[in-house]
Structures are given as structure tokens and as C-alpha cells.
């Protein structure tokens, strides 16, 4: 009984894993694909393996720049969204009634922020920047990315806070710590997993955002927008190389956090 169920579960897991991984493996695979003749561009025919695209990584004009822009943008917007989102989550969970009028409105707005189609958000952000005469570029990208990431951070941190025993903060105060020390020594360490999960989400959302970026980017093109533009003339194979790099970065981060939490468990 048990072993049959175990076998089906195993099969299901492997199939699911394959379904999720096949596109990525394809990308990594084709980053080693040679181009036989003409202008180097992606073809989906196997022409033999090569490391050429890794060597010529920086040879495409505009591609490395857009890649670095995306990384910088993701880091900056993650920092902004994580700080603002965490504080917002704290306010939403901790205060209500007279202390936080408009709490419901903020709550609903957050939900709308997540539910609204990206294209709507992109268009309205563009409209706003245009009417305030804000030049499009890194700043507008940063503001936009922080805005759509913020709601995700808030939701994640709030979930963590809801299981939080308020007596812990009271106990810290009871033992003589000021509200700020309590936050640093008790609240923050306790909600850290939620904050980190939110931050990772924000980073990922920013890194692969196309729709909103396309509206507010101006001439500063983040990686996804650049790639989209390149498809009209033919995508250089280096795009796959950068994609592979991003994937490796993500995988390393995931494995790193796994190892850290394992070690953390063993230490206690």
C-alpha cells in the first residue's frame, strides 16, 4: 500500500521537476550552440558545441550594459521595497482603529496592486511620470519596480507577523529594552525569514519584469526590454549565456540559503 503510494508520488515529483526544468535546460544547452554562417544569432538547430559565446560575452553592443542595469535595478528596488514593505506590514498588523485610520484602504490598495494587470500599471506609471515631467530612466524604473515589488514583500512579511507572539515584544520591554532595541533584537530576527523571502521575490520580479519596464524605461534598457528589442533583428546567442548566468546566480543563492539553514539547525 505504502510503497505503491510512494512510487506514484516519486513519479509525480520527477515529472513535475522535468516540466519545470526542461525550458531552463534548453536555454543552457543552446548557450553552447555554435552558429555556422552569417550573422551570429540564435538558431534552434544543433550545430555543434562551442564556448565562443562565453568568450565573446561582452561583444554585443548594449547587451552587457543592459544586463548590469538590470542587476543594479533589481538590487536597488529590492532594498527599497523590502524596507518600505516590511514597515508597512508591521503597521498593518499592529495598528488598527483610531491608531491607523485608512488601514482598510491601504490593505485594499495592496491587493489591487497585486491583482491589477501589469500593462495597466505600466501605462498609468508612464502617464504619471509624463504629467510630472519626470525624465524616464533609472529613477523612473527604480520607482516603478519598488512599487510593484512592495506589495509582495508586505504580504510575505505580514504572513510571518500574524503568527508572532506579541508577548515576546512585551517581554523584551519588560526586561528593559527600548522599542527600537526590541525591534532589532527580537522582532527583526523573528520575521527575518519572511523579510528574506519577500526580498528574494522582489529581486526576481524586478529582474524579469518586461511590461512595466517597457513603459517607463525610456532609452535606459533593462535586460528583458533589450532582448525584446533584439528579437526584431535576431537574438544573439549571448542572451542565452546571460540567461544561464542569471540561473546559476539564482541556483547558488537557493543552495546557499539551504546550507545556511541546515547549518543553523545543526548548531543548536
Amino acid at each position: 500500500m505504502r510503497s505503491t503510494r510512494g512510487r506514484w508520488l516519486g513519479l509525480y515529483s520527477w515529472l513535475l521537476l522535468a516540466y519545470l526544468l526542461v525550458p531552463i535546460i534548453g536555454m543552457v544547452f543552446f548557450s553552447f550552440n555554435d552558429v555556422l554562417a552569417g550573422r551570429p544569432q540564435v538558431s534552434f538547430q544543433w550545430n555543434g558545441g562551442t564556448l565562443r559565446w562565453y568568450r565573446e560575452l561582452t561583444q554585443i553592443v548594449g547587451l552587457p550594459e543592459s544586463f548590469w542595469l538590470s542587476i543594479r535595478l533589481a538590487v536597488a528596488s529590492t532594498i527599497v521595497a523590502t524596507i518600505v514593505g516590511t514597515l508597512l506590514a508591521l503597521a498593518l498588523v499592529r495598528y488598527e482603529g483610531k491608531k491607523f485610520r485608512g488601514r482598510r484602504i491601504v490593505d485594499q490598495t495592496l491587493f489591487m496592486n497585486i491583482a491589477a494587470p501589469e500593462i495597466v500599471m505600466g501605462a498609468s506609471l508612464l502617464g504619471m511620470f509624463a504629467s510630472y515631467h519626470i525624465a524616464r530612466g533609472f529613477t523612473t524604473l527604480l520607482i516603478s519596480h519598488a512599487v510593484f515589488s512592495l506589495a509582495y514583500v508586505t504580504v510575505t512579511v505580514r504572513a510571518r507577523l500574524q503568527g508572532f507572539d506579541r508577548h515576546l515584544e512585551e517581554a523584551a520591554g519588560d526586561l528593559g529594552s527600548t522599542p527600537l532595541t526590541t525591534f532589532r533584537l527580537v522582532t527583526l530576527p523573528m520575521i527575518m525569514p519572511g523579510v528574506l523571502a519577500g526580498a528574494m521575490m522582489a529581486f526576481a520580479l524586478s529582474l524579469d519584469d518586461f511590461v512595466v519596464s517597457n513603459f517607463v524605461a525610456g532609452t535606459t534598457l533593462p535586460f528583458p526590454v533589450w532582448v525584446y528589442g533584439a528579437t526584431r533583428m535576431g537574438v544573439p546567442p549571448q542572451v542565452f549565456v546571460f540567461g544561464t548566468l542569471i540561473f546559476l546566480l539564482g541556483a547558488a543563492a537557493a543552495i546557499g540559503s539551504l546550507v545556511m539553514s541546515r547549518r543553523g539547525m545543526k548548531r543548536t
Binding site: 507572539d165 508577548h167 515576546l168 512585551e170 528593559g176
Partner: peptide, 22 residues
């Protein structure tokens, strides 16, 4: 007066130990 300014300590009914500290 807030708790941290009172020379009072409490043993909470629910213990309220800090789970992340030894």
C-alpha cells in the same frame, strides 16, 4: 510609564521566551 522604564519584571503566563535565543 512604558515597561522598560519600570523596575518590574514579569513571568508571563505563556512564558514568552525568545525562540531565536539560547
Amino acid at each position: 510609564l512604558p515597561p522598560h522604564q519600570r523596575d518590574v519584571n514579569t513571568v508571563f503566563q505563556s512564558y514568552a521566551l525568545f525562540p531565536h535565543l539560547s
